[in-house]
Design a protein around this nucleic acid. Structure first.
Ligand SMILES: [Mn+2]
Ligand SMILES: [Mn+2]
Ligand SMILES: [Zn+2]
Ligand SMILES: [Zn+2]
Lengths: 137, 137
DNA sequence: ATGATAATTGCAACAGCGTTGCAAAGGATG
DNA sequence: CATCCTTTGCAACGCTGTTGCAATTATCAT
């Protein structure tokens, strides 16, 4: 329990199993959001179903958040803010680069207030930007 | 060719076939964005594949636009602005009601300018709001 | 009108993603 | 060790969307 990655899992009430540790390492070592498929390919051998269940539990526990970048391929990224079980605080913009295909969190851009018709009760606003990222300029 | 629905199709270079006319009627008569599955169920009998191809051609021609409301189920709605082949102008906010599950275009709310890191070249911004719609208050 | 030409449709088959059920393996706890 | 609960892996399945191909239908030029 000196391993910081193990600590994350245990603090969320999840056992620090080999699969979970390796998946979490992938997230820690990645600048971008990653799809289940990408994670799968980075492993020599991992069970598809186990990976799906791992991602689901990570998301439920507030370790990662799911990102819908409009490509149809869901992606996941580490939660930066202190998200808890069933309560996320990832209210930032996401960016999808049309050139390299990468998607990442734009932490320093908060979702602005947008005035809407008073008839609508807005609980959450999701913003996805498309364009060209720094590396692809 | 006095039928206004036929006119829409022909002005976009699409033949006014029975399937297309009926699908387009569904869009005209709906306040909400609709999923392929919903359209399929409104017909006594329609071929799934043909419907997918119809939606694809409608989208390409700028008759409808595809909406990703974050539910994982894609939806389509009529283009209000004059969208052309391969060039859409549907830069408005979309709203998904968590109560009734409906998704619709919020025409009168334009996507605001959002200041981003200068390193990012933003070409398009998609905004989806979640909450409670007027009917579900 | 008749035949050539091109667009549209319907069917079969397939691929990919994600889910569920279930049994085996692994940890925790006494 | 014995028990209980969690996690994993496999099989099977459902759903969405795609492609190939042949049949049908509309369009157009004789
Ligand atoms: Mn994020
Ligand atoms: Mn719209
Ligand atoms: Zn890029
Ligand atoms: Zn509603």
């Amino acid at each position: 329990m000196n391993d910081p990655i193990s600590d994350i899992l245990q603090s969320k009430g999840l056992r620090a199993t080999p699969v979970r540790l390796k998946v979490l390492e992938q997230f820690q070592g990645s600048d971008n959001a990653v799809s289940p498929k990408e994670i799968e390919l980075r492993f020599d051998q991992i069970d598809r179903i186990t990976l799906y269940r791992t991602l689901k539990s990570f998301e439920e526990k507030g370790i990662v958040h799911k990102i819908d970048d409009g490509t149809g391929t869901p992606k996941y990224a580490m939660c930066i803010d202190k998200c808890d079980e069933g309560h996320h605080h990832d209210d930032h913009v996401h960016f999808h680069c049309n050139d390299c295909g990468n998607t990442f969190c734009v932490e320093d851009v908060e979702v602005p207030y947008i005035k809407t018709p008073p008839k609508l009760k807005v609980a959450k606003t999701s913003i996805v930007m498309n364009g060209t990222c720094e590396k692809c300029q």
